[in-house]
């Protein structure tokens, strides 16, 4: 696979350097410049929100550092959790008197490192809460939903928690709304071509021409089925149908939608998926609000897309609509 890079070892740091140059509201700091923080820091008395994750998914995770979203983010190597030192530095930078919410995807390295960070900070008297993103419905059964991975739907939790923190919510408030957003957000993806880690000799996975894999994860984790490529409408219909089967029992009639490219899939194809996805949602009596279509969580050059549905109530709707400003997601006041 062709990559536009200088050297594999510089892939992460140089991409972060470019990101921070393009968006001067964020700053690189911490061990190895692997922590991204908001310029100006966290306001005194505001709950800080820290996240972290492997590189290779831009704009996730650090592209959501900004006003009304997350405050700091630790960045690991490609598809690898950030180091403990980076997680610790990011968490400390997020603290300014009101405690910290650790809002991370459900991945082993991140869980272990942020658990160690929490233990240390709590020993120092700092209040810390942790919420894991678990929106990928293909990664475990509903009965085993706490083992599910966090994928594109994590950004809804960022938005809800970030907005609640910005309006002065307590750590408990911010945690509770993040838990609610996670519980009400479901995602499924599909892939048509894999990606390759810089420096690796082989692509993460290989699909035959005109094949697709439904339910694939953002690191190429296997999905539900692999077969001949279907039409966009058939793909959208299956994805939305699977997501609707997981609709929370207390959900209302409003749903926020994210149609996300995994990297190589263009906007045109995303809008074709969006077109049919919304038709099916409306047929099911749902009102589609706050649509997001584009590159929000990627796997480098992987081809494919994901659809996330966030079954929202008025509270979440208001928080999703609140002003925010970050490289990946801006909501005008």
């Amino acid at each position: 696979m062709t990559k536009i890079i200088n050297a594999p070892k510089d892939y992460v740091n140089q991409s972060l350097e470019g990101l921070s140059l393009a968006y001067p509201d964020i700053v690189l700091t911490g061990p190895g410049d692997r922590v991204v923080r908001r310029r100006g820091g966290v306001a005194s008395g505001k709950v800080g929100i820290v996240s972290g994750g492997g590189a290779g998914h831009l704009p996730l995770f650090c592209g959501y550092v900004g006003k009304g979203l997350i405050d700091t983010c630790a960045v690991g190597n490609v598809f690898e959790g950030p180091t403990l030192d980076a997680c610790m530095a990011a968490a400390r930078l997020a603290e300014n008197g009101a405690g910290i919410l650790q809002l991370i995807g459900n991945y082993g390295g991140e869980r272990m490192n942020f658990a160690a960070v929490r233990e240390t900070l709590e020993d120092e008297g700092i209040k810390v809460e942790t919420v894991l993103g678990t929106d990928d419905i293909a990664s475990a059964s509903p009965e085993d939903s706490d083992r599910r991975r966090g994928v594109a739907g994590l950004i809804f939790a960022y938005k809800a928690a970030g907005a609640r923190a910005a309006e002065g919510g307590s750590l408990e408030d911010v945690k509770n709304i993040a838990v609610k957003a996670v519980a009400r957000t479901k995602t499924i993806g599909f892939g048509t071509a894999g990606c390759q880690i810089p420096g690796s000799d082989t692509p993460r996975f290989v699909l035959e021409k005109h094949q697709m894999e439904m339910g694939i994860g953002i690191h190429g984790e296997p999905g539900i089925w692999r077969d001949q490529l279907r039409s966009a409408d058939a793909i959208a219909e299956e994805m939305v149908t699977r997501l609707l089967a997981e609709r929370p029992l207390d959900a209302g009639d409003k749903v926020a939608i994210l149609v996300n490219s995994l990297g190589a899939t263009p906007l045109e194809e995303l809008f074709i998926l969006y077109r049919h996805a919304t038709t099916i949602l409306e047929k099911n009596g749902l009102r589609v609000v706050r649509p997001l279509v584009g590159h929000f969580v990627t796997s480098m050059e992987m081809a494919g897309a994901s659809i996330s549905l966030s079954f929202i109530d008025d509270e979440l709707d208001a928080l999703y609509a609140a002003p925010a400003r970050s490289p990946a997601w801006t909501v005008a006041p």
Binding site: N77, C87, G109
Partner: peptide, 14 residues
């Protein structure tokens, strides 16, 4: 080990 990686395996080694 801890400063080289944040991966699960690296964590376990550390």
């Amino acid at each position: 080990a801890q400063s080289a990686t944040g991966s699960s395996l690296g964590n376990l080694i550390s």
